[in-house]
């Protein structure tokens, strides 16, 4: 399998009224063809900024890719010109946004918004564009596509809108789809339908997916691999099995313990105390130290180098150090 995307040492900063925010602080990950990678974390952890950086959609100024590379199919896209980047957006890499209620332009028809990408990137007649649009609407499960094409977004329900957003992202047949919280704004029943749709689409088109979410339920359903982000860093990455059954980072463990599951009584949910650190002045050590039940002095002082636990499983935590055995034993027992 070939690597479709490789992000190395990505740093993104924002200049704000209160100072410079380091939203993403040295992120590494890669994505294989046809694979689904989930990036999980609390809001503000930098996961959306990461995905927007891949699309080069960070508002600049104030945002800036300060360091690192994003290699898509062997080409570093961090320093492409805007014009070159426009040829990649929608055609090679597409994006789905969180809230389908705001992602569609209220004053343009659905058909117009669906076909404009095609018309931009391909030399295509209106009739041909319409034909492809109807096919795409069928694929994402919109009934009466002929009639729906002429309607405006407000005439669609939330679920139908999200299907249209997905259709718009897929219409130029991209190789990489970035879905930023694609189900967060939807009802639970609709969420399940949309997730099924992702599976169906991946099967049909072989598209690679980066799924940005804070919802571990969504992850369990469609991800192949999971990267856990905290305070602008990826603190643990592994296959779905490794993350769900053998989480090594106390934060990942906490995240899993705080998710309601059918086999656990609601009373046994354990919330993670405290809040993530302020990224105006991120701590030099492990950012989770202040909230970590197993924090050691070293955690506060030095950021842990990632330890490789398997070919796919990596974690950045001092508990993996031999010298921390006495603490990690307790941690293991508690889990």
């Amino acid at each position: 399998m070939e690597k479709i995307l490789e992000v190395k040492d990505l740093e993104v900063t924002f200049k704000t009224y209160g100072g410079e925010v380091k939203a993403v602080r040295g992120v590494d990950f890669h994505l294989m063809k046809g694979e689904t990678l989930a990036i999980v974390g609390e809001s503000g952890c930098g996961k959306s900024v990461t995905s927007n950086s891949i699309m080069r959609l960070i508002p600049s100024p104030p945002g800036k890719i300060a360091n690192g590379s994003i290699v898509y199919k062997g080409r570093d896209i961090t320093n492409l010109s805007d014009k070159e980047m426009r040829k990649i957006r929608g055609v090679d890499i597409s994006m789905i946004f969180q809230d389908p209620m705001t992602a569609l332009n209220p004053t343009l028809t659905i058909g117009d918004q669906l076909t404009e990408g095609l018309k931009q990137h391909q030399n295509i007649t209106s009739g041909e564009a319409k034909k492809q649009a109807l096919e795409m609407m069928k694929l994402v499960g919109i009934p009466n596509p002929d009639e729906r094409l002429k309607q405006y977004p407000h005439q669609f329900s939330g679920g139908m809108r999200q299907r249209m957003v997905i259709a718009m992202a897929l219409i130029c047949d991209p190789d990489l789809l970035i879905a930023d919280e694609p189900t967060t704004a939807l009802d639970v029943t609709i969420q399940a339908q949309i997730l099924d749709l992702f599976g169906k689409i991946q099967e049909r088109t072989g598209v690679s997916i980066i799924l940005i979410t804070h919802d571990l339920g969504v992850v369990a359903k469609i991800a192949d691999r999971i990267a856990v982000m905290y305070a602008g860093k990826i603190i643990e990455v592994g296959s779905k099995r490794e993350i769900f059954y053998d989480p090594k980072h106390p934060y990942t463990q906490g995240l899993l313990n705080s998710v309601p599951r059918l086999d656990i009584e609601e009373d046994n949910l354990i919330p993670i105390d405290g809040t993530p650190p302020d990224l105006f002045s991120p701590p030099q050590g492990c950012p989770f130290t202040a909230r970590c039940p197993f924090a050691m002095e070293v955690c506060d002082k030095v950021y842990p180098a990632p330890s490789k636990l398997s070919s796919t499983h990596k974690v950045g935590c001092w508990l993996q150090d031999e010298r921390a055995k006495h603490v990690s034993n307790i941690a293991g027992a508690r889990q």
């Binding site: 959609l57 805007d82 969180q98 569609l104 990408g117 718009m168």
Partner: peptide, 27 residues
Amino acid sequence: LTQDYIKMARAKGLSPYKIVFKHALKN
């Protein structure tokens, strides 16, 4: 220009001209 649908239009790879005059201006 900060609305999601403008971001979406950019994500489609539309030209700045189209984004301003087709998507943003009327709204």
